[in-house]
Structures are given as structure tokens and as C-alpha cells.
Amino acid sequence: MFVLVNLKTYPCDPVAIAEAVSDVNERTDARLAVAPQAAHLERVAETGAETWGQHVDPIEHGSNTGHTLAESVADAGAVGTLINHSERREKLADIDGAIRAADRADLETVVCANNPAQIGAAAALEPDAVAVEPPELIGTGTPVSQADPDIVEDAVAAAETVADDVSVLCGAGISTGDDVVAAGELGTEGVLLASGVAKADDPTAALEDLVAPL
């Protein structure tokens, strides 16, 4: 299972969490990664933790003040990037452009979407993975696998229909190892979470709890 921790802009220590990710990753068969803010990418990557960007723009080198260039994310040490998170929504054409930009920089891609129909559309753009995240459950501590498992199963089916090599992740409300297990039982290959680790008093313990049942 892939466990991707998005730090958003929470008031946490990204290096300390990255060190916890790196430590726990060495003691589990799961794959753990962390997505800090762009300004922290290099410091986080230096810990040895698998590092992801939170966003890249559909741009190339040039006059793009204030945008996030995929090559800069890669140069900072990231190996992948989120695209179209519910808190950073994009038009379909821009999602496509961001995937192509990430591909150009050899970054893996996870495209987030709200429901199975959007998952199907995102999968058709051929990212490495898609993540189903009903926005109303984000940050609630109630996982979608518990609140509405049909959404997860339908998302997996939608992705398989258009691109069976695109992995499906489960996001929104993930906070325990049981949530990770449930996500896997519904057909996903990983989870995307944030507050369950980023807001934890002990990020190492939170990560250990997530992977303990695996």
C-alpha cells in the first residue's frame, strides 16, 4: 500500500514529519511519502523521505511569475506531485497540461477527484494514479471507505474501465490503520491523508498506527 501524507499549509514541522516518514518507511512493507509546501521541498527531500509536490502548473520555462514549474519541483528532490486536490481545483485542460508537465520532469502523478465520474475522466488523461476524495469528508476523521464505500468501489471500476494501469488511491478522513485496510479491501492501492499525521502530537506513532495492520 502507498501512504501519501499531504502536509497542506498546516503549522507543522515538515522536516520532523519527513524524518518520521523515512524512519517508519524502513520498518514496513508499505510505501510512505510526504508532500510538503513547495518552499520546504528541498529540506524535506534531504531527510531521505520520499518527497512529493502538492501541485505543479501546466507551464514550461518562461514568463510565469508565481507559478510552480514541474522541473523546479523535481530539482528540489521530489519524485511526484499531486494535481487537482480539492483545495486546488483545476479545469480538465489544465489537469492534462499539468500531467504532461510532470511527465516531462519525470515526476509521478496522482490526480485527485471528487467522485467516480471525475475519476474516470482523470484516469483517461493517463496519470500514474488517481485519488477519490469527497470534499465534504476531508479533515473530518470519517473515512470515505466507512461513510460511503460505494464511492470507492465505483471509483475503482471507473478507472479500470478507461485505463486499467492507473492506480486508485482513497482519500478524505483517513486516520487509522483500519482505514488503510478498509481502503485496500475496496480495491484501492493506497491512501492520501493529511491531518491524521500533520496534526498529530506524535507523527511517528500516527504513521506506525497506519501501517501496523499491513
Rank of each mutant, 00 (worst) to 15 (best):
residue 198 A to S: 08
residue 156 V to Q: 02
residue 67 H to T: 12
residue 69 L to I: 13
residue 35 A to L: 03
residue 86 S to K: 12
residue 81 T to A: 08
residue 133 E to V: 08
residue 197 V to G: 04
residue 1 M to N: 05
residue 110 V to S: 06
residue 51 T to P: 09
residue 103 D to W: 00
residue 113 A to S: 03
residue 145 S to Y: 03
residue 211 V to E: 15
residue 108 E to P: 02
residue 207 L to T: 13
residue 202 D to W: 01
residue 87 E to M: 02
residue 8 K to T: 09
residue 76 A to S: 15
residue 85 H to S: 05
residue 11 P to A: 09
residue 20 A to S: 06
residue 154 D to R: 10
residue 143 P to A: 14
residue 3 V to Q: 02
residue 121 A to E: 15
residue 199 K to G: 05
residue 44 V to G: 10
residue 41 L to R: 11
residue 164 D to V: 07
residue 24 V to W: 14
residue 211 V to P: 12
residue 147 A to D: 15
residue 24 V to M: 13
residue 84 N to R: 11
residue 48 G to V: 07
residue 182 A to G: 05
residue 207 L to I: 11
residue 201 D to S: 05
residue 80 G to Q: 11
residue 35 A to E: 03
residue 91 K to E: 14
residue 168 V to K: 00
residue 67 H to R: 15
residue 58 P to I: 08
residue 40 H to I: 07
residue 99 I to L: 08
residue 31 R to W: 12
residue 185 E to N: 15
residue 211 V to H: 14
residue 161 T to E: 10
residue 150 D to W: 01
residue 174 I to F: 13
residue 214 L to R: 04
residue 98 A to G: 11
residue 45 A to L: 08
residue 6 N to R: 09
residue 101 A to G: 10
residue 210 L to E: 14
residue 136 E to W: 11
residue 209 D to L: 06
residue 190 G to V: 09
residue 159 A to M: 04
residue 145 S to P: 04
residue 113 A to V: 01
residue 111 V to G: 09
residue 97 G to Y: 05
residue 114 N to S: 15
residue 140 T to G: 14
residue 134 P to H: 03
residue 31 R to H: 14
residue 39 A to W: 13
residue 186 L to Y: 00
residue 63 S to F: 02
residue 155 A to G: 06
residue 151 I to V: 15
residue 29 D to R: 12
residue 157 A to R: 14
